[in-house]
Design a protein around this nucleic acid. Structure first.
Lengths: 245, 245
DNA sequence: ATTTATAGTGTTTAATAAACACTTATAAAA
DNA sequence: TTTTATAAGTGTTTATTAAACACTATAAAT
């Protein structure tokens, strides 16, 4: 069949779906990789399945796209349902479509990732009691192609971290330089030089140093900072933000 | 409904799809942005629709995912059907899902982009006579959200061009330095300094200079080069290829 | 007063990027 | 055969950015 024929039938608003097209309809799942930063460690939110198939195995959270919503909305809904939280940074990652990726039925999964500050929110709204924050380094094997999804999400997060100050989303409102550096070290999975890091961050000119100190981390205490969101967004517009760590 | 309920029903291999899930099934389209490089210009392959809706308007090529194939295969099939060509570099870009993006029916579109050397292949195999190579700069308005797709594809291509020697795919086997520079200038949409460009390319050490000259471009003629694919792939493995223009 | 733990702070060197202009080879024209 | 026209080819200097490197400061606890 020529592509044009296919399009011709399918996209004519006046035609009902014919048999072949109904045949080709599929369920679209949305799976979410939820990254959380907790003081020193980068974690992901996983659930232990209490249902078949793959009962007892670990998996990402997910749901199905509904007729009346787009994928972004579906991802937000899934996250809201699980964590009770809205207003979270989310971004579409990739769409997975191996024919037998879900042995139960043909499902295509559009994968999203989210960034969240584990400590800034309480998770009373959490709906699935089998959900846990797991350190990335110790993450168990996941069902289906979820491991592949996580790997791709980490790669994306890393790239993102090299060009955008993503700390906004993963850190509490007030944070120390050490926390910010810990975040980047977690994401990039390597040690950074403290002085070079601070010099680089300061040269960006998007942080505001407060008079306040976090006295829990050391005798001396560490100054707290906040992001200057306005400056940041202005910079993004102007020069696309060239932020290389 | 809780996410877990949804998953529980949906992913049980022993259950048929229930009514609600059948309701939520959608058609998955694949749309392709096919970039071609033709001597000096970056082009995309578009078709003029000879069917409703939006008859007479320009559009990307596309088709629908079938039950027995994955998305990569669908994209390859669509490209093959249109151009008669296989073995083309393709990459998934993004999935578009606005509820009313296609006024005819609910369709989610997974977008791919391909890179191709316009001159190295003849398009006798082309199946749609309304398909044309259009210079990116002069591209007409496209149907649905296809303009958005093209914009995203250009952004991706640009990022890719900054970190990978994509010339492999877009140039003929033998090419001149000027052609390579033209390619990068087209993609990045800016003039580059000839000497700096050549210095940078040579420092990568992935080209082989031939004894042969292309005499059609000037009185003096210009030396032809080929990519050293082995060296290139070794470099990719070793240091991830840090190629910044 | 001493100890202790982490915060805070600059400079030097190396690497990379950017700016910059003249000569050369050849075919075509005179 | 000489001249002319055209794009190819070729290095150096300067500016910017990245990387390497070690000591002092502060405040709480003892």
């Amino acid at each position: 069949m020529k592509v044009s024929d296919n399009l011709e039938v399918a996209k004519d608003a006046n035609l009902q779906l014919n048999y072949y097209q109904k045949e080709d309809q599929v369920l679209l799942a949305v799976d979410c990789i939820i990254f959380g930063f907790d003081k020193k460690d980068l974690k992901i939110l996983l659930i232990k399945r209490n249902f078949e198939p793959e009962k007892g195995k670990w998996s990402l959270i997910g749901g199905f796209l509904k007729k009346n919503e787009n994928l972004d909305q579906a991802a937000v809904r899934v996250l809201k349902t699980l964590t009770g939280l809205g207003d979270i940074y989310m971004e579409q990652l990739y769409t997975y479509s191996k024919v037998d990726r879900d042995p139960g039925q043909r499902t295509i999964s559009v994968c999203y990732y989210a960034l969240i500050d584990v400590n800034a929110h309480n998770f009373d709204g959490i709906q699935i009691d089998s959900a846990s924050w797991i350190e990335l380094k110790n993450a168990p094997e996941l069902i289906f192609d979820h491991d592949e999804m996580v790997q791709k999400a980490i790669a994306r997060l890393r790239r993102k971290a090299m060009t955008n100050p993503i700390g906004f989303e993963l850190l509490p409102e007030k944070f120390t330089m050490r926390q910010l550096q810990n975040l980047y070290e977690s994401i990039l999975d390597k040690k950074l030089d403290k002085r070079n890091f601070i010099n680089k961050i300061n040269s960006l000119d998007v942080l505001v140093k407060l008079d306040e100190k976090d006295m829990t981390v050391s005798r001396k205490g560490a100054y707290l900072y906040i992001f200057d969101k306005e400056k940041y967004e202005k910079k993004v517009e102007e020069d696309g933000f060239n932020f290389k760590i």
